[in-house]
Design a protein around this nucleic acid. Structure first.
Length: 920
RNA sequence: GCCCGAGUGGCGAAAUGGUAUACGCACCUGACUUAAGAUCAGGCGCCGCAAGGCAUGUGGGUUCGAGUCCCACCUCGGGCACCA
């Protein structure tokens, strides 16, 4: 058969325009429909000057396919798109080309929109949003104020309005200044002088999440530390809920894991070390309180506040101070590259180990981080690699001991002896004989008991033959020992249970122009005051120069008319905040705005949110797992707690989260401008059409795995769609023949089985072969595969069906089903063929085909015949044939016979319709 | 170091514990064509003339039967990393 090339360049623009005119993809207003909803969401792009990358269409098409199917299944689908348009690249480009960022953004959006629209995606453009639109960022600012006006109630584990914060009497008595201070210290948005990650190249403060590894997320350059007053959002208050409430959602397991790891909860204890002749004590945090007996020194971070208190007692204070200076100037990057354990002892001050009651030295070292725990640790060199390295280097005492004051270890060690043996063997050490284990443990235990009496430190594991350090002990289940130790600590009033998190508060101000202005004013009398609602949006003023300043101030600081305002509370002259928000702000709630994008009264109505939220499926990149995804969950929870989101929407914004993978360059290397291997979607669409690009990107490989681009494979997909088109033309011709032959058109459309199958022009009726099995298999497989985001195998199944249909004539109902199956993948092609059939409404609003279970049953099946598990032949038997029948047929099969001759069959394993295995 | 992934033809990749290599690409042979391309028919894991044997990173194990489950290990990719 001659395969024709289908006219994609004609039909694609045609149907795109028609869809838009018909509003085919517009979500229906909840008040106008009783349909169930489906809210599918892809991360809205940052409209860069580079234009669309071939990576973009992969998730867009994938979720497009899924939402198209949902629509055809009768759901009211919301699949929106918008622009996350504040951001640094645009600002930098604007600086370079001396154009206003707003203008650059508008231009970029136009280009992005054109590119996205040419892909034939079923986005509801009537709900398009743009984070830089004042009508949008008005609400971002409004929400910030709500954060400012809220605090986190630890007991209720939720945010509440600041007005409901009960101020303790003694504070109230100390005057309004104290009350204000008390409140400010509790707000969810608060100003704090912090050491921030400062990128000297971009001249901007970065959130921890943006400065991972001491490298600027934007420019890849090194990050410095700077002191700066910054707006912060108290995301740490939500640490526990951000972990716990993951139970309520279906995210890819790796997404959950990395969020949990990022939040970094660890359970342990706070332990107090007394300092002789001092009113202070040093508090440390440890996850291994059971190793307290082995703590032979303390280490403080260089920033630790207590150091100053001992200025007079520390005999080498100058040296300590110098060390502190040096540590401060070290960037995170330097710290990481050089993990040498430097440090200085605080001479003249000692601490008491509360378990052993022995005096131990105190050191300062930068391997202890000020931001985690209490910024001080007890060092147990026998148990911790870092402490061990430090002790070795500085000649500190290493006590090889694990010795909680409980009988616990005896049984524990015996239980773990096999693991211990393996561990020892792995290190080339000979473990004890089985018979010796009990003896050794017993004698160790005796020694341990004696040591308690004599108050000597007990070398517990040494008894087991060899030295064992942290490697093994960390592998032991220590939670029980830890638990018991904490009970003991609390009883002895030495310490208490404590949970800490790695998660830091969110640094929320940027010293940049192209972001949402922070709607706050500083007044001498009132402190930080938010704007009144009526003053929102606070517009970003036009500026002459967008360049950031070296002083670390935003360009806005130079505009007097912007800065000098009246206090919103007391009307006294005041100064406006000149920092702007990070571009994570607008994306933290955009999914809410899509529900009701034109609302002037509220960011979205309760009615709309009740219907649409939560998002049923949210797809986005893995790189946003600990940034956008975490931020927006937090943001949503705050709005929820404060009652701005209906409680029926639930605690989590996204029911399901899935991730796509990257498209790599030809040969498997990452696409990049410098390597010159970037594929431009414009070119592909021009050459092959959007349907080919879409289908190819779905066929390229498993959706969640990186896949290399291949020009040759694109051609293969093009051939496939040409084949579909050619096949369809023949079917349509045949369909018309049927009608002109006097068949009732309605009969034909209903696809009644009695409608006689006609031959293709020129073909013999006898050529017509049944295709029901493959068709229904395909309906089943494609349906399931789309639901499970297994698009590659769905496409391959469509290819199998198309191959099967070559030269065959379909009943018209079946042909319609065939087109519907293809419609989500190649929407233009399917729509055109659909209309060629005489339909006047869109195929994308038709109902999704159902498979018929009975059509999946075959009359005969092939059963594999094995002798001793080796394949020796196959036989055709009736479906569900009895074992005896199959056995006889198999035994008679010539290829099998020779293996069974003269053999006694000991056993037969028969799996219906699959396999029969003779054991001889 | 820790946490994820992934190792199957020449390549992208398929396989509820049941005939490994579906589908696509590349390649080979033939047809049509002056020719090329497109298209069509057929072939295509490796060794072997064949019978047959060997193949899913390596080594063990469970099972009538393992790419799939268990144990140990190797390689590659990604993420995190002095978090006490």
């Amino acid at each position: 058969m001659f395969i024709m090339s289908y006219p994609f360049s004609e039909i694609e623009p045609k149907w795109q325009a028609w869809w838009e005119k018909q509003g085919v993809y517009h979500a229906k207003d909840p008040s106008e429909t009783g349909q169930e909803k489906f809210y599918g969401l892809v991360e809205f792009p940052y409209p860069s000057g580079e234009g669309l990358h071939v990576g973009h269409p992969r998730p867009y098409t994938a979720i497009d396919i899924l939402t198209r199917k949902r629509r055809m299944e009768g759901k009211n689908v919301l699949y929106p798109m918008g622009w996350d348009a504040f951001g640094l690249p645009t600002e930098n480009y604007a600086i370079k080309t001396k154009q206003p960022p707003a203008k650059v953004t508008a231009k970029n959006i136009t280009n992005f929109k054109r590119q996205i629209q040419m892909l034939g995606l079923g986005f509801d453009w009537s709900r398009e949003i743009n984070t830089t639109d004042p009508e949008y960022y008005k609400w971002t600012q409004w929400m910030f104020i709500k954060f400012f006006d809220a605090w986190f109630d630890e007991k209720m584990q939720k945010a509440r309005p600041i007005a409901e914060l009960v101020v303790p009497k003694e504070i109230e008595d100390s005057g309004s200044g104290a009350v204000q201070e008390y409140r400010d210290a509790k707000r969810l948005a608060f100003k704090q002088k912090t050491e921030i990650n400062w990128c000297p190249k971009d001249k901007i403060g970065l959130a921890n999440e943006e400065a991972v590894g001491g490298i600027c997320d934007r420019c890849g350059g090194p990050v410095e530390k700077r002191e700066k007053e910054q707006w912060m959002l108290r995301i740490t208050s939500y640490a526990q809920r951000l972990i716990d409430e993951l139970d309520q959602v279906d995210y890819l397991e790796k997404i959950k894991t990395s969020q949990i790891n990022w939040i970094g909860r660890s359970e342990g204890a706070l332990i107090e070390f007394q300092i002789p002749n001092s009113k202070f004590q040093i508090q440390i945090f440890t996850t291994r309180p059971d190793t307290l007996f082995g703590a032979t020194y303390l280490v403080l971070s260089p920033e630790h506040h207590l150091i100053k208190n001992y200025e007079l007692r520390i005999t080498n204070y100058e040296e300590v101070k110098k060390y502190q200076e040096k540590a401060k100037n070290k960037s995170d990057l330097e710290r990481q590259e050089n993990k040498e354990k430097t440090g200085v002892q605080l001479k003249g001050v000692m601490a008491i180990n509360p378990a052993t009651k022995k005096e131990i030295p105190i050191w300062v070292a930068d391997y202890v981080l000020s931001g985690y725990g209490t910024g001080a640790i007890m060092a147990v060199p026998a148990h911790d690699d870092r402490d061990f390295a430090f002790a070795k280097k500085h000649n500190l005492k290493i006590i090889n001991v694990v010795c909680p004051p409980f009988d616990y270890w005896k049984d524990e060690i015996y239980e773990k002896r096999h693991e211990l043996e393996k561990w020892l063997r792995g290190r080339g050490q000979t473990p004890a004989q089985e018979s010796e284990w009990q003896k050794k443990i017993d004698s160790g235990y005796e020694k341990y008991k004696k040591s308690l009496e004599s108050n000597e430190i007990f070398y517990c594991y040494t008894e087991l033959g060899k030295t064992i350090n942290s490697d093994f002990l960390n592998g032991l289940e220590t939670s029980k020992a830890t638990e018991k130790m904490i009970v003991w600590l609390e009883k002895e009033k030495i310490g208490e249970k404590k949970v800490t998190y790695k998660l830091r508060d969110w640094v929320f101000s940027r010293q940049r122009y192209w972001g949402e202005p922070i709607p706050m004013v500083y007044c001498e009398h009132c402190g930080w005051a938010p704007l009144n609602d009526a003053e929102l949006p606070l517009l970003l003023p036009e500026v002459k120069a967008y360049e950031p300043t070296d002083t670390g101030e935003s360009p806005l600081a130079g505009i007097k008319s912007f800065v000098n305002v009246k206090c919103p509370i007391c009307k006294a002259p005041a100064r406006r905040e000149t920092d702007t928000m990070p571009n994570w702000a607008g994306s933290s709630w955009y999914f809410l705005r899509y529900c009701d994008p034109h609302n002037k009264e509220m960011f979205a109505s309760n009615f709309a949110m009740k219907y649409w939220m939560p998002v049923d499926l949210y797809n986005g990149g893995m790189e946003h797992t600990t940034l956008h995804l975490l931020y927006s969950r937090f943001w949503y929870k705050v709005l929820f707690d404060l009652g701005f989101i209906p409680s029926s929407c639930g605690h989590e914004p996204y029911k399901v989260r899935r991730s796509h993978a990257m498209i790599l360059g030809e040969g498997g290397i990452k696409m990049s401008k410098s390597k010159g291997n970037v594929i431009n979607p414009d070119e592909i669409v021009e050459k092959f059409g959007a349907d080919v690009l879409r289908t190819y990107e779905m066929f390229i490989g498993p959706y969640d795995m990186d896949a290399p681009w291949s020009v040759k494979d694109v051609l293969g997909v093009k051939r496939f769609l040409d084949k579909v088109w050619t096949l369809a033309q023949a079917q349509i011709t045949n369909y018309e023949l049927r009608i002109t032959n006097g068949k009732d058109a309605k009969d034909v459309q209903d696809g009644q089985d009695e409608v006689k199958t006609l031959s293709l022009p020129g073909a013999d009726v006898a050529d017509v072969q049944p295709y029901d099995l493959v068709l229904h298999q395909t309906i089943k497989k494609v349906s399931e595969d789309i639901d499970n985001l297994r698009f590659n195998t769905a496409v391959s199944q469509l290819m199998i069906l198309t191959n099967e249909l070559q030269g065959k004539v379909m009943r018209s109902l079946d042909f319609r089903s065939y087109l519907k199956l293809i419609a989500p993948f190649a929407p233009h092609l399917a729509e055109d063929l659909w209309h060629q059939l005489g339909n006047e409404t869109s195929i994308h609003l038709e109902t999704w085909p159902q498979y018929n279970e009975t059509k999946l049953i075959q009359q005969n099946v092939t059963v594999a015949v094995q002798i001793n598990g080796k394949l020796r032949g196959e036989v055709k038997v009736a479906t569900d044939a009895e074992e005896g029948v199959v056995r006889q047929t198999a035994t008679d099969e010539s290829s099998v016979k020779k293996y069974l001759e003269g053999q006694k069959v000991k056993k037969v394993v028969y799996v219906k319709n699959k396999i029969i295995n003779f054991i001889v």
